[in-house]
Amino acid sequence: MNRRYRAGLAVALAAMLTVAGCGDASGGKSVTNLRVMVPTGPGGGYDMTARTAAKVMEEAKLARNVEVFNLAGAGGTVGLARLVNEKGNGKLIMQMGLGVVGASYANKSKAKVSETTPLARLIEEPNVVVVPDKSPYHSLQDLLNAWKADPGKMPGGGGSSPGGPDHLATMLLAKAAGIEPKQVNYVTYAGGGELLGALLGKKIAFGVTGAGETTDQIEAGTVRVLAVTGGTRIKGIDAPTLKESGVNVVFTNWRGMLAPPEISESDRKALLKLITDMHGTKQWQDALAKNGWTDAFLTDEKYAAFLKSETERAAAVLHDLGLG
């Protein structure tokens, strides 16, 4: 057994090295020994973003020995608590996004995003409001009218738990349309795949989920998009924005990076420069295109202000539901 478990460890290590290793020793003033924490399991969206960013930092010789590790739990709040505990550690950053903001409220986490040092927002993705192709609703207004008439009879679904992006988007939409969030019949599915299964099987009236997860279904004509939730229309999707449909909501699911609280000014500057430089590389831009991510770069104080408004918005929704 010993041989076996050693082999397992060696392989796991080798896998990590493939991602994090191969640092060239020629970079002059590059950041060394940076650790990137992913607050969710391997293979998810946060994980992909963090590993791609780490790879680009290494390849562009902006940093050496970048290690990505996963600390999953409670929608990212376990990782957030760890970040807050690592006060002053200038060699640690955490991959996060709107989901972590919502989860920290929904889970009544003691650690708050506001305690950390904001670094940058990297990417965003709008949500879409979708119905099955045979649905009687052809415009967002059709859907909202029916929804308002009897919220209970209009189950809607999303691929995230209460506090997650799909849930927040659904509740914001309801609130703007004049439906009490508590009346909304929101069915939780474990991810976009399961949600689309329920939608294609006509179990629920409509779904609210990430645009990227539905692209192929839209192209194949199995679902119909009634609206996109971002500020602008999405290329290739024939649907208006929420604002164009008369609902005053702009919502995107975004991902960004945080550092622990109370890090030194020089560390903060170095990390900001690292991420800004990383964002400027061709490798990162290529990665954006390859993964279908929309660039939404925002740093430092602007990002801090953005985080604040997002936190307030999520908190308000969850408060209405008695969760905040």
Partner: peptide
């Protein structure tokens, strides 16, 4: 976490 209501 109860995934329907978000309560723990």
């Amino acid at each position: 976490i109860d995934h329907t209501t978000g309560e723990q």
